[in-house]
């Protein structure tokens, strides 16, 4: 004997039919996501940085952050800036970089052909991904690259756990 659909089931069937275009839309999203993953794969093969996409910064300076077991390393390009023109502060997880790049006047009787290098102030706050030990922060400026090594707090360090 054929069972008749209850009213609720009928509504469900109706909804499924009605939502059909919406299901197609969801599939489109899925294919977008797949495409994004493929793009990731492509960029990672191009730049040799697996699983790491390149995020351009809107605020000067652009920084690269890396980590090892004990420290975070924050690096930025500071060509032509002297160490005393950069100020660093660590508050909680936030690392602040302030300063000003000055370009000295080269004298009165000069004629410029190109002038692309820019002077100006900068300030940026960078949120580090884990807790840090603000007592162990080292910064050095070599060949125009600033490297700030920030010690991780004990909580943020990875622990080796041996299986008994």
């Amino acid at each position: 004997m054929q069972t008749t659909l209850k009213q609720e089931d009928q509504i469900m069937v109706f909804r499924k039919m009605f939502d059909f275009p919406f299901m197609g839309w969801q599939n489109n999203l899925a294919s977008m996501e797949r495409m994004a993953r493929q793009m990731d794969l492509l960029t990672s093969t191009m730049f040799g940085r697996p699983q790491m996409r390149f995020f351009p910064s809107k605020v000067f300076p652009a920084v690269n952050i890396t980590e090892d077991n004990d420290r975070y390393y924050v690096r930025a390009e500071f060509p032509g800036i002297r160490a005393e023109e950069i100020r660093l502060e660590v508050v909680g997880r936030n690392l602040s970089i302030f300063g000003e790049r000055k370009i000295q006047s080269e004298g009165e009787n000069i004629r410029y052909h190109r002038r692309e290098r820019e002077a100006g102030r900068f300030s940026r706050v960078i949120g580090l991904p884990g807790d840090v030990n603000s007592d162990s922060v080292d910064a050095k400026l070599v060949n125009g690259i600033l490297t700030i090594a920030v010690g991780k707090s004990e909580v943020a360090k990875p622990k080796q756990i041996s299986v008994m």
């Binding site: 940085r49 790491m52 920084v63 690269n64 890396t66 390393y73 690096r75 690259i145 490297t147």
Partner: peptide, 13 residues
């Protein structure tokens, strides 16, 4: 200039 056992957290340049 990055050390051997460093892994990337954020890449902006």
């Amino acid at each position: 200039w990055e050390g051997q056992d460093e892994t990337d957290v954020l890449v902006e340049f």
